[in-house]
Simulated assay, not measured.
Amino acid sequence: MDIQSAFFEDFTSLHKDMQIIILENKEPKEEVKEKINYKEFTKDEKEGRYGFFLNLDSEIRLIHQINQEWLKTEDSSSQGSF
């Protein structure tokens, strides 16, 4: 077994409630993926997991929209005052 395979295989023996994040590495073999809770960050909403934070882009868009609506409300309410 090569070092890369042994690296991933070792995770299969860890307790199930542990979380390990590996950045910039090769994918484990399919039989290892089946034994662990493998998540691939794909930046694709239809395949894998989009990013580390769930729905971050949609939350940012929502915050931006709320801010824009608030600015419009503030702008229209301040137009009538001196």
Rank of each mutant, 00 (worst) to 15 (best):
M1K: 15
M1E: 09
I3A: 05
Q4S: 12
S5P: 00
S5G: 14
S5M: 02
S5V: 01
S5E: 07
S5D: 14
S5A: 13
A6T: 07
F7R: 02
F7W: 10
F7S: 00
F7P: 00
F7M: 06
F8V: 00
F8I: 00
F8L: 00
F8H: 01
D10F: 04
D10R: 08
D10K: 08
F11Q: 00
F11S: 01
S13Y: 14
L14G: 04
L14I: 06
K16L: 13
D17F: 01
D17L: 03
M18Q: 10
M18C: 15
Q19G: 05
Q19Y: 14
I20G: 03
I20Y: 09
I20S: 05
I20Q: 05
I21Q: 05
I21R: 01
I21H: 06
L23G: 10
L23N: 11
L23P: 11
N25V: 07
N25G: 15
E27D: 13
P28R: 00
K29R: 13
K29A: 14
K29Q: 14
E30R: 15
E31K: 15
E31N: 11
V32W: 02
K33A: 09
K33D: 04
E34D: 06
I36L: 03
N37H: 05
N37G: 12
N37Y: 03
Y38Q: 05
K39G: 02
K39A: 09
K39C: 09
E40C: 12
E40D: 13
E40W: 15
E40Y: 15
F41E: 02
T42W: 11
T42S: 07
T42P: 12
T42Q: 08
K43L: 15
D44L: 09
E45G: 12
K46Y: 11
E47G: 12
E47L: 14
E47F: 13
E47H: 15
E47N: 15
G48S: 07
R49D: 11
Y50M: 04
G51H: 04
G51P: 00
G51E: 04
G51T: 04
F52Y: 12
F53S: 11
F53W: 14
L54D: 10
N55C: 12
L56A: 12
D57C: 02
D57E: 06
S58W: 05
S58K: 15
E59R: 08
I60M: 06
I60G: 03
R61D: 03
R61A: 10
R61K: 07
L62S: 06
L62H: 08
L62Q: 08
I63L: 08
I63S: 02
I63P: 00
I63A: 04
I63T: 07
H64N: 14
H64F: 03
Q65F: 06
I66K: 12
I66D: 07
I66H: 09
N67I: 02
N67Q: 02
N67K: 01
Q68H: 03
Q68C: 09
E69R: 09
E69F: 04
W70M: 06
L71S: 08
T73W: 10
E74W: 09
E74N: 04
E74H: 06
D75A: 05
S76V: 01
S76N: 10
S76P: 00
S77R: 05
S77D: 05
S77P: 00
S77F: 06
S78R: 07
S78I: 06
Q79G: 01
G80M: 04
S81Q: 01
F82L: 02
